[in-house]
Amino acid sequence: MTITRALSKLGYCSRTQAERLLAEGRISVGGKAVTDFETWVDIHSDRIEVDGLAVAAEEKVYVMLNKPRGLVTTRDDPEGRETVYSCLKDAGFGFLSPVGRLDKASEGLLLFTNDTVFAQRLLDPATHVPKIYHVQVGGRLDDRQAKQLKSGVPVEGETWRAASVRIIRHGEKNTWLEVTLEEGRNRQIRRMLEAIGVECLRLVRVAIGDVELGDLPKGDVRRLTNSEIAILRKATGFGGR
């Protein structure tokens, strides 16, 4: 694989950061400095160094964050907005990447890991790992509209569907729904609601598969338990190891 992908896969840094290190002449392979982005390496046999220090595969780390509203899911935001990494900066987990995204206005369960294969499998629509959201909408949503979200609504020339939708409770001026998705389209729930003329007031992801956000405080992070990791690995076809 390319040197930039190798450094990302080893959990050292992102590909973008690796490109910067290359441009600065800080990376060597087999004792020779490299600057070409297309340099290919074997992570199992080639000695890769940054600033003269060997890069080795790090322990696999899996954590969850209760993402607050108002943070963007990226490491470096060109607009200078606060990112989810402000919640991880003092946690001491090393370089981690988010597994999928939550948009700026959304809240709740967001996973991070340095296990790129695991992350790709978890995001692959073919694995059908459900993501569960609690969604507050304006007005009193009726059963017909809830069923419409499941049967399908037109969005940009396509039919988008939720795997399941149920009404949790009605308020005087709003309704809470539980929506389950098995695909990862950009802002899917918000855009489906917009398509049927319903305003999304709040969106909180509460579970991925059988791993739940629980009572983790807003803005806090914690490692996944071994049983939670096994549950997700099994759901993605890795098995429970």
Rank of each mutant, 00 (worst) to 15 (best):
D36F: 06
G108E: 07
V72P: 14
Q145S: 14
S28F: 03
F112C: 09
A57C: 04
V55H: 02
K131C: 08
V84Q: 10
G30F: 03
T113I: 08
I48K: 03
I132A: 00
E79R: 15
T127C: 04
I27K: 00
F112Y: 04
P125K: 05
S97P: 01
R47S: 12
V29N: 11
K131E: 06
V29H: 13
E59S: 09
A119M: 12
T73G: 12
N66P: 05
R20Y: 02
G108T: 04
K60Y: 09
A91I: 01
S45R: 12
H134Q: 13
E82I: 09
L110F: 09
V41S: 00
T39Y: 04
V41M: 02
D103F: 03
D51W: 04
V84S: 10
D124Q: 01
A119P: 14
L141H: 00
F112G: 09
D143G: 12
T83A: 07
A56T: 14
D36V: 03
G52A: 03
K60E: 12
A91R: 15
Y85L: 09
Y133T: 00
G139V: 04
G138M: 10
V61Q: 15
D142Q: 08
L22N: 11
G139P: 05
R47Y: 03
V84N: 07
V55F: 08
S45G: 01
I48N: 02
G31P: 07
E107K: 08
K89A: 14
P130D: 05
G92I: 06
